[in-house]
Nucleic acid binder design. Sequence first.
DNA 1: CTGTTGTTTCGACATACGTCTATCTTGACT
DNA 2: AGTCAAGATAGACGTATGTCGAAACAACAG
Lengths: 114, 114
Amino acid sequence: MSKQQLASSDCCTPISSAVLDVEQATEGAAAFKALADPVRLRLLSIIASAGDEVCVCDITPQFDVSGPTISHHLKVLREAGLVDCERRGTWVYYWPIRDRMQRIASLLATGASA
Amino acid sequence: MSKQQLASSDCCTPISSAVLDVEQATEGAAAFKALADPVRLRLLSIIASAGDEVCVCDITPQFDVSGPTISHHLKVLREAGLVDCERRGTWVYYWPIRDRMQRIASLLATGASA
DNA sequence: CTGTTGTTTCGACATACGTCTATCTTGACT
DNA sequence: AGTCAAGATAGACGTATGTCGAAACAACAG
């Protein structure tokens, strides 16, 4: 836990200013894939809207899906480098990695006015 | 053709400043899903990097997948409101809808510094 | 040390998705 | 009309993904 997997090295080249090569596209698509589910998007929204961090025990009741399903989606967000977590006693707390969020957004944004 | 499907009405509320409700999350996830494929991301990159518009005949040779597959992915991008197209004679030309791109990006971006 | 609660992992299942080939549509040019 | 080329559509196939219940794991209480 508390380990980021994806490099996100060149995730900041906006797709409107230069054509992505296959590797960049694969990496970027993986990032967007993590966001491409309603449950995960709400999860990230809840975590990112919190001032600091959120306990899983406060998250799960807000959804209609089972605990294991929430856990699975949190893992996807973690592996995408969008959130990180830490266990403290019985509970596990999640917080957003805003730099990563910003970087993914800029993939789409920067060149959008060109 | 030349028809946009998705409303993208409230796609501008950044997920970091307010918790998305189920409907907003569903709509946002659908948008990200359109970007969650390497071929589509490269397609959008090619179309958005062009000054004006791009002919499909210039796009297809840049990929290793079949013509119908390219056509399918372009349709997904179209239905997501990210590109639009027009037939002129034998050829079909695509251009990006930058406003839509920007709006989706801002879902992720705005609150990312909070 | 045993029981309880919170969270993750495992295995299974149904559905969604990306890809292909074959076929259809549209327009241009004889 | 007849033919040809560019794209789109239809249907089929394999794989990936979201979901669940059951079980494992972690931390604490008695």
